[in-house]
Design a protein around this nucleic acid. Structure first.
Lengths: 211, 211
DNA sequence: GAGATTAACGGAACTTCCTCCACTTACTGT
DNA sequence: ACAGTAAGTGGAGGAAGTTCCGTTAATCTC
């Protein structure tokens, strides 16, 4: 179990801007980060997520195992880093992209679009996400991305339904989008379309004025 | 990873009645099951869930490690078995106990009571539940209990709001009750009361007729 | 440029989960 | 009783994640 700050990816981070850490990364560190990520990506592409062992990654990257851990904290952290590119695209899209995902559309439509986008992301890389979310420290929540998504939802929910417990509802809306949940539903034969409809139904309930 | 049927606890099961397996358990097997469960319970009480290593359990129970695995499949399975007693109480309560949890109350009230009960269960044994839910095979869903809870919710949801996608909504309502989710929320300072209110809010949305 | 500072490196060692399989034992039918 | 057999047992061994710490080298200071 990683103990302290552990140091998150410094270049383009999944979550919030890192504070308090040295702004620059030593050259060799940056180089190794790249080598490790490339190696990891190659392994995932080749052998699937199951083949992503830390030893294997280190060997292929030509670094020691300790270096992999120093850079990424643990296996979940490495998985998160591999998801980083897509995650950043997603964040850009809902923070400043075109509606309905981005600003401009009405809140309910934006929430729907956002939940659908999250679903599509799980659909695109389910295995990596499962690994990223599943470790001993609730990586899903500590990963940084969750906080961003949560904050985004809180904002929109407050617009859509002032007075609601936006913080709780944001958690509740994100919960069924956990990679393991969706993976399970897909295995049960539930289609993406149906899952999205279900999310819509859930959301409509929340945002419909009952006054 | 456990491959096939793996054999679940035969005496009082968490989930559905087992089919196709020999109805009786050999005497020595039953004896060992008891010894293992006692040892495991003792360890959890003494050293917490973190101290629950399979080796330790086997040693304390005076059996080989292989026996522990044969009985319980994996660590998550052992954790589930430790939760079994409470789980059975819960199932009895909502299947045949007094309202509002049991039959008699209106569906929405029953759902609320059920969700609250699930929350209380997490509150009572968060660590064990986290272990039980978190392994490589999505133990939460394969454990048997989930299926029972899901079925129960589907029934009630169909009564409360005919025409809804009860199967999806049941998943969606159970998702925020995952032990890891609630643990995280509690760490963030969210009180049980607030979590329950939030669940009520979520549910009210779903079940309010918009027609 | 030399020396000091300190982040970064590497990989052996440790831990724990889980599998495998040769051996043993409880139950069954005759 | 007793042999046959399916179920159960145990622990060595393999695999993978993670930690630790002595060594190396990038960066900074003068």
């Amino acid at each position: 179990m990683a103990s302290e700050p552990v140091e998150l990816p410094v270049n383009g981070l999944v979550g919030l801007p890192v504070v308090g850490l040295p702004p620059t990364e030593r050259a060799d560190a940056a180089r190794n980060r790249r080598k490790i990520l490339d190696a990891a990506a190659h392994i995932v592409a080749t052998a699937g997520v199951d083949g992503l062992s830390m030893e294997e990654v280190a060997q292929r990257a030509g670094v020691g195992i300790g270096t992999v851990y120093r850079r990424f904290g643990d296996r979940a952290g490495l998985a998160y880093a591999l998801l980083d590119e897509r995650e950043r695209e997603l964040q850009t899209a809902f923070l400043s992209g075109p509606p309905p995902l981005g600003p401009g559309a009405d809140p309910v439509a934006r929430i729907k679009a956002f939940l659908h986008a999250l679903h599509d992301r799980v659909e695109a890389q389910p295995d990596l996400l499962v690994v990223a979310e599943m470790n001993s420290t609730h990586a899903r929540y500590t990963g940084g991305a969750y906080a961003v998504h949560h904050t985004h939802l809180v904002t929109l929910l407050n617009q859509a339904k002032p007075g609601c417990d936006a913080h709780y509802l944001a958690d509740a809306l994100l919960a069924p989008l956990a990679a393991s949940t969706i993976t399970y539903q897909r295995q049960r034969g539930m289609s993406p379309t149906r899952i999205k409809s279900g999310l819509d139904e859930l959301l409509d309930g929340i945002t419909t004025r009952t006054t």
